[in-house]
Amino acid sequence: MTKRFDEGMRLMRRKGEDREAGFSLVQRHAEEHLDELIEAFRAEGEGQNMRVLLLTLIGEARSPEALPILVEHLDHEDESIAGWAVQGLEMLDTKEARIALYRHRANNAHN
């Protein structure tokens, strides 16, 4: 990991302007640190605020490698996480992402 990425992750664990500054630092390098973002997301546990930020960044990486984790969280019980999974797939905008969104919406239309 780069020093900027590490610093951004540290700041994201704080509140207020520090969290925003950290998010911006990591956001600029989300694609090149996608593996670390996914690892951090999976390791986060109960920290929902941090998980939402991390999933947002994973989606903003716009990388096909993010597809599995985004699809996995489409039906998450936390609406914020599910919502960012949807938005991440929309930003990815690949055939596979569109199919996953279509299936998700079709399944939820019948519930």
Score class of each variant (00 low, 15 high):
104 H>C: 09
5 F>Q: 03
72 E>C: 03
87 Q>S: 13
91 M>R: 09
28 R>A: 14
68 P>L: 03
69 I>P: 00
106 A>G: 08
56 T>E: 10
31 E>V: 12
34 L>Y: 03
57 L>F: 04
82 A>I: 03
20 E>D: 10
107 N>L: 13
53 L>S: 06
65 E>C: 00
4 R>D: 12
32 E>V: 09
94 T>R: 07
82 A>T: 04
8 G>T: 00
87 Q>L: 13
95 K>Y: 12
83 G>K: 08
21 A>S: 10
105 R>K: 13
40 A>H: 05
50 M>T: 11
60 E>S: 09
16 G>E: 04
81 I>F: 11
62 R>D: 04
94 T>F: 09
31 E>I: 06
33 H>D: 05
26 V>Y: 02
62 R>H: 08
4 R>G: 07
101 L>R: 05
56 T>H: 07
87 Q>N: 14
108 N>A: 06
85 A>K: 02
105 R>S: 07
8 G>V: 00
51 R>N: 02
7 E>G: 00
39 E>T: 14
28 R>M: 06
11 L>T: 02
91 M>L: 15
46 E>M: 12
96 E>R: 11
105 R>L: 09
87 Q>M: 12
16 G>I: 07
18 D>L: 08
62 R>L: 08
24 S>I: 08
101 L>A: 12
88 G>D: 01
92 L>T: 01
24 S>M: 14
62 R>P: 05
33 H>T: 04
53 L>T: 00
50 M>S: 09
10 R>K: 13
36 E>V: 06
101 L>H: 07
38 I>V: 15
90 E>I: 14
55 L>D: 01
92 L>E: 02
109 A>L: 12
107 N>E: 15
61 A>G: 14
109 A>H: 12
50 M>D: 04
48 Q>N: 07
103 R>L: 15
13 R>L: 10
96 E>L: 06
86 V>S: 03
63 S>C: 11
18 D>G: 03
87 Q>H: 14
71 V>M: 01
83 G>L: 12
46 E>D: 15
98 R>L: 09
75 D>T: 10
44 E>M: 08
24 S>G: 04
8 G>N: 01
30 A>S: 14
53 L>I: 01
23 F>A: 02
43 A>H: 07
48 Q>T: 15
6 D>L: 11
29 H>M: 15
76 H>E: 13
23 F>S: 01
95 K>H: 11
45 G>P: 08
77 E>R: 15
110 H>S: 13
80 S>Q: 14
20 E>K: 11
102 Y>M: 11
90 E>S: 11
91 M>W: 11
15 K>I: 10
84 W>H: 14
33 H>Q: 14
87 Q>K: 15
85 A>M: 04
18 D>Y: 10
61 A>S: 14
30 A>K: 07
80 S>K: 10
